[in-house]
């Protein structure tokens, strides 16, 4: 597979009262064309910020993003706009991300108009109607307004808008988190179908480990602004190497009462502040394996097995059970 996007040493810091918030710290990875890369982590781990950095929606403090071999930071104005056509985003809240005063048709046509796609407004309107159909909505919905739709339908509208410019990469930021279970499955199927039909590449950001497992070819786990583990989906879920990943997987309440285990080790404590993050490994204050080295020296993201990267001084062995 060919590399579509590469992030190199991305850093995002925000000045805050009393210091600097280290939201994303030295993150590097790549996304292959046609794959779905899952990005999981708990709130505040920097996963959404990372998504926005990739699209240059917010500027990085340092680091670079390469898209199809070109350095995005070198693009300005019109050139940046045309690069952005290839990269779109779908957001969590289908209520907040659609302008309530615009008809569905206008919402989908907006990017088409902005980029002067097609030869006439009539042609763009026709393209918008086609897009509605492709996301499973009726062409007649063109003249309706967002409030006339359910949450799942609104998310479909958001997807149609993201597809309008025929992008290669879509960054999906918690696209099904606000939806009911039965609707969530419909949207996940739609995303799979669109990927198969159009050869789309997804970065799928979510806190839901089951959803990420289902959709992703590879998965990145983030903790406090850093990648702690990155691997193919099966390896990551079946034999995680980073203690944090193991805890995270064990925390998910599974819909099967036979899997209850009240003796299971749980992660204790609360995440530390990103303003003055712990020295060494940022996970060390909550890690049962932490020793002097973990408190002093930041672990690099090292390749433990082919394609399996982990940033830990004491990675778990295969199927090791936490005690």
């Amino acid at each position: 597979m060919a590399e579509l996007l590469r992030a190199e040493h991305l850093v995002k810091e925000f000045p805050v009262k009393g210091g600097v918030s280290h939201v994303v710290t030295d993150v590097s990875f790549s996304i292959e064309k046609g794959e779905t890369l899952g990005l999981v982590g708990e709130s505040g781990c920097g996963k959404s910020t990372l998504g926005k950095l990739l699209l240059n929606l917010i500027p990085a403090t340092s680091g670079r993003v390469w898209f199809k071999g070109q350095d995005l930071s070198r693009f300005k104005g019109e050139a940046l706009r045309s690069m952005r056509r290839c990269m779109q985003m779908i957001f969590q809240d289908p209520y907040a991300s659609l302008d309530p005063r615009m008809s569905v048709g206008r919402i989908i046509m907006e990017p088409l108009d902005a980029h002067r796609v097609g030869s006439s407004a009539a042609e763009r309107a026709e393209m918008a109607r086609d897009l509605l159909e492709q996301v499973g909505l009726r062409r007649e919905f063109f003249h309706r307004y967002p409030h006339q739709f359910s949450g799942g339908q609104r998310q479909r509208i958001g997807i149609a808008r993201a597809l309008a410019l025929n992008p290669e990469l879509i960054i999906c930021d918690e696209p099904v988190s606000a939806l009911d279970v039965s609707i969530q499955a419909q949207i996940l199927n739609l995303l799979s179908d669109l990927q198969a039909d159009r050869g789309l590449t997804y970065l799928f950001i979510s806190h839901d480990l089951n959803v990420v497992r289902y959709l992703s070819d590879r998965v990145i786990v983030m903790f406090m602004g850093q990648i702690c583990e990155m691997s193919t989906t099966d390896q990551l879920y079946e034999a995680p190497r980073h203690p944090y990943t193991r805890f995270l997987l064990d925390s998910v309440p599974q819909p099967d009462p036979l899997l209850r285990d009240e003796t299971r080790a749980l992660l204790t404590g609360e995440p530390s502040s990103t303003v003055n993050p712990p020295k060494g490994c940022r996970f060390h204050p909550r890690c049962p394996y932490a020793d002097a080295r973990c408190r002093a020296e930041r672990p690099d993201l090292a390749e433990m097995a082919p394609g399996h990267f982990c940033a830990c001084h004491h990675p778990l062995m295969d199927r090791e059970i936490l005690s």
């Binding site: 279970v181 039965s182 996940l188 199927n189 799979s192 089951n210 289902y214 070819d217 819909p255």
Partner: peptide
Amino acid sequence: LIASLPRMTPKGQRLYTI
């Protein structure tokens, strides 16, 4: 409801939907 949860469904296989 139970069937539409993405639990052990392998990638590429469609999720059950209501």
